[in-house]
Design a protein around this nucleic acid. Structure first.
Lengths: 245, 245
DNA sequence: TATAGTTGTCTATAATAATAGACATTTCGG
DNA sequence: CCGAAATGTCTATTATTATAGACAACTATA
């Protein structure tokens, strides 16, 4: 594991950010579990072939995230190493999925609107373009740390009060139940990864320049009729998606 | 869809790269399908709130990828818009999965070694640490474009000739068959997204600074005995992972 | 054949990122 | 209690990134 790690210049991604990403990965891989500490700045600088100040920028970013804490004279301690493991299965439920990984999970309603379904949304929900649907923007946190934000669409005729239910119950599963749908299953999920835009940075309180995983999913009732079209953006450095087949 | 798109400064990711990412996403979302062209540089610059030269850097990167082509006097044409859709299911097979999305798929053996299983690998394969396993580094391409690179581990006692078989047959599925295992299933898959390191940039011929999705998977024979531990890095801007449950 | 609307190229300047070196400060072990 | 080994801070310099403006070159169309 002492192989020289490599970073690239002139890539549009600053060296300190590439290094921060790699160190974060090493932490979550358990590479430093023996000591519970990051190697000294000088050592890292030589491993990555950069100046010590560049490494310091990377460590400052990780400290900002609360991942490490530098102590003068001693070294840089690892504070947290977990990535939440988020299961994706036929019955994907946010709160249940995280299970005992977090003491407390929360879904907060950021925005709502009723609008005409179009393009991808109409196709996903299997309704005619122009049909009314309810849009809800949600932010999900575990133990106070934002994990994902999502934009959700529901057919307005079938679930007229989704917004109020979600607001009141803090859960889509519970809102569906209150609207008379006790069970639903995931019928498709597509994943894409990209850099976060400014909205997502702010919402998810990401260290700027971070990566999001965008999951586009359709949920259906037991008869196979689509009930939800969702686009969820996960903070890529906080979650690991675990696919259950 | 004409909402002002947002990019962040001082993030460690250059503006032109963030913009290139967003434009690439818009292309693959079909936002510009009506015209088949990217909006004029001036328009993009105002949408993103940056200088025209910054947009030009982003477009130059996309042109380098072969995604767009600028024509003086006319505009910037979209050359390709596809992301390969890569299915992840109980029976994940590279070539079959891509199906008719590519005329030709290839698996190239980059490196091989026999070494003692340790840590994650031993745990994944369910063997005692120290037991010999065969490691194969593969690069997979579709129609000549690299799609993923992977590091694979197999128990050495059960599949002693995997390296030769894969080299000869150009496929893990066929190599397993030749070694007497006609069928196998995916038992676990974990996904993480991060910036590509220099090795991955070179291997996958990525535009530098790009994102990779790292899938860590275990395959098992029909009896549930693990036969393969694989860590696959996908070029995030070339694939969409489709989860089939 | 003008002309509006594009992309291409050049120069100049400012802001940010990276390197380099020196030295202060703190912790910990001998 | 000294000294080695860390992190913290400061100054200076260079390279890269971003902005700004002007104008050339090309395309399509009225």
């Amino acid at each position: 594991m002492n192989a020289k790690k490599v970073v690239e210049r002139q890539t549009g991604v600053a060296l300190w950010r590439q290094i921060a990403d790699l160190i974060r990965l090493s932490i979550s891989n358990g590479d430093y579990d023996q000591t519970g500490m990051i190697p000294p700045e000088i050592v890292l600088a030589s491993q990555f072939g950069v100046n010590r100040h560049t490494v310091r920028s990377a460590l400052a970013a990780l400290a900002e995230e609360g991942l490490v804490q530098a102590i003068q004279g001693r070294g840089t301690l690892i504070q947290r190493k977990e990535r939440l493991s988020f299961p994706i299965s036929r019955r994907t439920r946010f709160a249940q999925g995280l299970g005992d990984q977090a003491r407390e999970t929360e879904a907060k309603l950021l925005a709502q609107a009723t609008l005409a379904a179009a393009g991808e949304v109409a196709a996903g929900l299997g309704i005619a373009p122009g049909t009314d649907c309810i849009m809800l923007d949600l932010m999900r946190s575990a133990d106070g740390r934002p994990v994902s934000c999502s934009t959700n669409f529901f057919p307005a005729d079938r679930f007229p009060h989704m917004a109020e239910q979600v607001e009141r119950l803090g859960s889509i599963t519970k809102a569906f139940a209150a609207e008379g749908l006790p069970d639903y299953v995931r019928v498709s999920t597509e994943l894409v990864a990209r850099h976060a835009d400014a909205d997502e940075l702010a919402l998810l309180r990401l260290s700027p320049g971070a990566i999001v995983i965008e999951a586009t999913a359709v949920n259906a009732d037991p008869d196979g009729v689509p009930v939800q079209f969702a686009r969820t953006r996960f903070a890529a450095d906080r979650v690991k998606l675990k696919i259950e087949t």
